[in-house]
Design a protein around this nucleic acid. Sequence first.
DNA 1: TTTATATACATGCATTTGCATTTAAATGTC
DNA 2: GACATTTAAATGCAAATGCATGTATATAAA
Lengths: 148, 148
Amino acid sequence: MTKTPSQKTIKVWGRIFRIQKKALAYTEKALKSAQLPQLAWYDILLELDKAGDQGLRPFELEHDLLLPQYGLSRLLDRIEKKGFLQRVPCLEDGRGQRIVITDKGRDIRLKMWPIYAKAIEDIIGPNLSENDLRTLSEFLAKIDIPEE
Amino acid sequence: MTKTPSQKTIKVWGRIFRIQKKALAYTEKALKSAQLPQLAWYDILLELDKAGDQGLRPFELEHDLLLPQYGLSRLLDRIEKKGFLQRVPCLEDGRGQRIVITDKGRDIRLKMWPIYAKAIEDIIGPNLSENDLRTLSEFLAKIDIPEE
DNA sequence: TTTATATACATGCATTTGCATTTAAATGTC
DNA sequence: GACATTTAAATGCAAATGCATGTATATAAA
């Protein structure tokens, strides 16, 4: 039997969930209004763009972005179908593949960024100073999730 | 054109999303292992339980829990089908209904709580003092989401 | 080298979600 | 009161998700 979390603990939990829910909805709505792909696509394209020419293995993306394996597999299908990424065979492991961003993918990511940036700024920006942000970030960093 | 968010802003945004994603996955997994319903069911049942005998209108739940109207409508279908809540006609508004928790619903909520509580404690608890939590909570409260 | 086990990724099927629209009752206007 | 508008909730259909399993290659054990 575990001790029940303190009121403050529960409060923090609730706020994190609520903020992310609203933030996500707000951002998705903005992207949709701009006729752009979902946030998840941005995350993938950003990782791929950062990874450069040799791309990333699906299992790396899976880990970095906390996506379920089957979910990622089909998400990649859809993004690939739009021509934003390419699956290339993997030399060092016949089971695997490398996922590489295309020019079109880089382009759409850049188009998404201003919308995404505005959402982030609208939500986090207005009421927190840079000092607040540093403190907040440090406290959030202390919340460490059990890896399983 | 909006100014791009600061690095610190982006960091905070990223941490909030990452924490909630992991926290959600961790909690859902624990509930599933215990053969209990999803987290969303708990949230609904808690609101209903707090609301007491006269229950809540769907649009109230929708607002409180940030759920889409159609999503809630069908979520209520499923929870009702399991006998955890009841839809009763609404006297003061013929279009509406009141959602009321059942004994079985109260019971399952209580069974879910220890699992949920442990997840919250596992994730938020270990590395933050009560003082940390108060500070964190205050900063999070400053993040105020545009209501539309 | 054969055989067992683990890892990378895909996929069939059922459930859930998202979107648009529908139904019905309430409110507002004339 | 008659008619248009708004609000509460449900629903048909397409898309996405979750779960379990399948396929293929890699690694380990015998």
